[in-house]
Amino acid sequence: MRNKFRNVLVPKQFLFRLTFINIMVITVFVGLSSWAIYNTACVLADGLVSMSNQKQAQFEATLFQYLWIFSISTITIGCLTHFYLTKKLIHPLRELIYSTKKMKQGEYPAPITGKTEGEIGELISHFNDLVKQLEVNEQNRQKIVSDLSHEFRTPLSNLSGYLQALQSGVIDGDEKLYQSLYVESKRLIYLVEQMEQLKEWDHISSQSFSKKSPVNMKNLVEQSVEMFHWVCRNADIKINVDVAPSVIIVNSGAIAQVISNLLDNAVRYYEGTGPITVKGRNIESEYEFCVTGPGKPISLDAQERIFERFYRTDYSRSRELGGSGLGLAISKEIMEHHRGMIGVTSKENKHTFWFRLPRK
């Protein structure tokens, strides 16, 4: 409590110290000016007009009295004006400190208002944006954790109930039952992968991917596609690959992850007929990679937001097929670290996810 009280007084202490220093400066300046004016006036009066010693002493006393009044009035008015202006200037900083303390306590303060200009105004504007973004991120994290917790509960209850029944001999196992248990176990594995993506997002955001080396994109794409061969075969999905060779200096692991994310997205949301087409080509100073496949129509709003963190185009499918909304966001983050671009083009039920990388 004592430390908290001391922290609250920091702006006041700063205000008092600054005011005290300025009072000292004003006092010294006014004092020296008054002393110079006083001596100059006495010398001029003595030289220009011949006065008796009594009149000279009376003149000096009157002048000294007026200078005292002038000095005290100037110092008082100057200090009060300075204190008011300094307090008004520091007020936004006091609000900023108060809001920062609330954030340390796990709360999200209301935006700091006020018509503050200059560097302080810019700082407060950035602080308000930061608080808003952190609050949105926290809400999204809580939502995805809540969704995952709810989704874990059903398969775990099913597995626990059937395994207990098998153990006690209440039911006998058959092929259909084991297939259902296998499907439930796959759901659990997938949910764990989604939770891993939450941790992966923080890791990706802090990486600079400075370790880069020449990579042949044709080989990298073919290796990534091969990883989806078994999944596509079971789902009866055909993949056509047409990739031109090109050597680019990139972080191979990060780019392979982007390719896998786009392929996984195409396979997971595959809906309709026709193959998934994978293309890679050289365009002037860039290399373009595209994954095209059929799926549900994507609205213009969804196309603009699909690379945002935690965003999912179809929440109704989230429990069975939906992702955590991080895969595409991670891909965008990796592209930005490589000074590349990523996007989506959609026409009815045919969607193309693409990225471009500079070849030099």
Rank of each mutant, 00 (worst) to 15 (best):
L191M: 14
L191R: 14
L191N: 12
E193W: 00
E193V: 11
E193N: 11
E193C: 06
Q194Y: 04
Q194C: 04
E196W: 06
Q197C: 09
Q197D: 12
L198H: 08
D202I: 07
H203Q: 10
H203L: 13
I204N: 00
I204L: 03
S205E: 05
S206T: 05
S206Y: 00
S206F: 05
S208T: 09
S208G: 09
S210V: 06
S210F: 06
S210Q: 09
K212P: 06
S213D: 09
P214C: 08
N216H: 13
N219D: 15
N219P: 00
N219H: 13
L220I: 00
V221H: 06
V221D: 01
V221K: 01
E222P: 09
S224I: 05
S224P: 10
V225I: 05
V225L: 11
V225H: 01
V225G: 06
E226D: 15
E226K: 07
F228A: 02
F228I: 08
F228N: 06
H229K: 09
W230N: 11
V231D: 09
R233D: 03
R233V: 15
N234G: 10
N234W: 04
A235E: 08
A235T: 15
D236A: 13
I237L: 14
K238A: 05
K238Q: 08
I239H: 03
V241S: 03
V241F: 02
P245Q: 11
V247W: 04
V247S: 08
V247I: 12
V247L: 08
V247H: 00
I248A: 06
V250G: 02
V250R: 14
V250P: 00
N251E: 04
S252T: 13
G253A: 12
G253W: 10
A254G: 02
Q257W: 13
Q257L: 15
V258E: 01
S260H: 09
D264G: 12
N265Y: 02
N265I: 10
A266S: 10
V267N: 14
V267Y: 14
R268P: 07
R268G: 08
Y270T: 11
Y270N: 04
E271Q: 11
E271G: 05
T273G: 12
I276C: 07
T277E: 14
T277R: 08
V278T: 05
V278S: 06
K279N: 12
G280F: 01
R281M: 11
R281F: 07
I283K: 08
I283R: 09
I283Y: 11
E284Y: 10
S285Y: 01
Y287M: 06
Y287S: 08
Y287N: 01
E288L: 13
E288S: 15
F289D: 02
C290L: 07
V291W: 00
V291P: 00
T292K: 08
G293S: 09
P294C: 04
P294R: 03
P294I: 12
G295Y: 01
